[in-house]
């Protein structure tokens, strides 16, 4: 297992480099332009000068290598310097990956947005999973019962209603009509005491609810299907025949085996947590990573989109690695070597 993990880790370096190149290629081919969102009163010649000042006149491979240098060498050095409080390798002249639009280091922007994204999207993911697994288990165990039918119905409706709609719906109900929760997320709120904690919870409830609905719907479906598969297996009959208690059969034997495919789904969803939730963040003005990405894309902000997507790619590769390792642990029959 250790051997396998190490081999996968080593292999992921060239894979990630390749992915970074493909992303760069796509962004370069894409027709968005950083001056596209500027007012039309800015004449075309000035736009051309702006593009030149952003370095867009250089050939594609030069810009790619520059990004590689900035991201793989300068950014880690910068983190090191900030951590140690030093200034190594003439830090004054070191160019970091800088956004076209805000003209500030992209990594700083990402760090600034992490808290709200982790709070809202991460919390919704945890909540979603915690609700989904019991629903899936009970639905499968009592297949075609009222609980199962209701669960199926709600999760399907939940999944098929997009957040641009459900988000506005909960705002109209809970903010406008009832006035319980704020419709706009305050990113400057710092939790210092009980009062601010209550405010934080209040402003998180609606986005978390909307996002968790999607997660729950998806994962409970997979959980239910996987449980059903396992409930009919011979080993379950054997376990019951041995006279094991039903709860032991269900929770130890069946649940453990059913979790295998579900773990993949969960692990695969983790990078998406860091990727933020584009639409839900927009609707509630959470302004996390998802909103940063969509603003970057709309504004043709290539360094921002490139960096964000690449960090995202790194997480996907590692999430998949973790999923594969978990497989091996949960199902000893799987051998990778």
């Amino acid at each position: 297992m250790l051997n396998y993990t190490l081999r996968r880790l080593m292999f992921s370096v060239p894979v990630l480099l390749f992915i970074s190149f493909i992303i760069f290629l796509i962004l370069d081919l894409a027709p968005s332009d950083p001056t596209g969102n500027l007012p039309l009163t800015i004449p075309p010649e000035v736009r051309e000068k702006i593009r030149t000042s952003l370095g867009l006149d250089a050939p594609m491979w030069v810009r790619y290598l520059l990004w590689c240098k900035q991201f793989f060498i300068n950014e880690p050095l910068n983190i090191w310097d900030q951590w140690r409080g030093t200034c190594s390798f003439n830090c004054e002249d070191r160019l970091r990956v800088v956004s076209y639009v805000t003209r500030s280091p992209v990594v700083d922007l990402i760090v600034e947005r992490m808290p709200q994204t982790l709070w809202v999207v991460g919390m919704s993911y945890v909540v979603g999973i915690l609700i989904a697994i019991p629903i899936g288990v009970i639905s499968a165990y009592k297949q075609y019962s009222v609980f199962d039918q209701a669960g199926t119905f709600i999760s399907m409706v939940g999944f098929s209603v997009p957040p641009f709609f459900s988000g506005v719906l909960v705002i109209v109900i809970f903010s406008v009509q009832l006035g319980w929760f704020p419709s706009i997320y305050d990113t400057t709120l710092e939790v210092v005491d009980w009062e601010t904690f209550k405010m934080q919870v209040k402003q998180m409830i609606m986005p978390v609810m909307v996002l968790a609905l999607q997660t729950t719907a998806q994962i409970s479906r997979f959980m239910r299907a996987s449980m059903l598969d396992n409930l009919n297996q011979d080993y379950v009959r054997t376990a019951r025949a041995k006279g094991l208690k039903e709860s032991v059969v269900l929770l130890v034997h069946v649940l453990r085996n059913s979790l295998i495919p579900v773990v993949t789904v969960i692990a695969l969803g983790v990078p998406a947590v860091f990727g933020g939730a584009i639409i839900t963040e927009q609707v509630f003005k959470v302004n996390g990573i998802g909103q940063l990405l969509i603003i970057g894309i709309q504004g043709g902000d290539a360094p921002l989109v490139q960096t964000l997507t690449f960090i995202f790619a790194v997480m996907i590769v590692f999430a998949n690695l973790i999923a594969d390792i978990l497989y091996g642990i949960l199902d000893p029959r799987i051998r990778y070597d």
């Binding site: 596209g36 039309l40 043709g300």
Partner: peptide, 30 residues
């Protein structure tokens, strides 16, 4: 998409400057 339409990407056929259409609509001002 506005970022493409009002953008000046040389390779894009969809910019308002290239105007690969018969009629186009937008707002301008001074």
């Amino acid at each position: 998409d506005a970022a493409v339409f009002f953008g000046g990407d040389q390779s894009s056929p969809d910019t308002f400057q290239k105007f690969y259409a018969d009629i186009e609509m937008y707002t301008n001002l001074f």
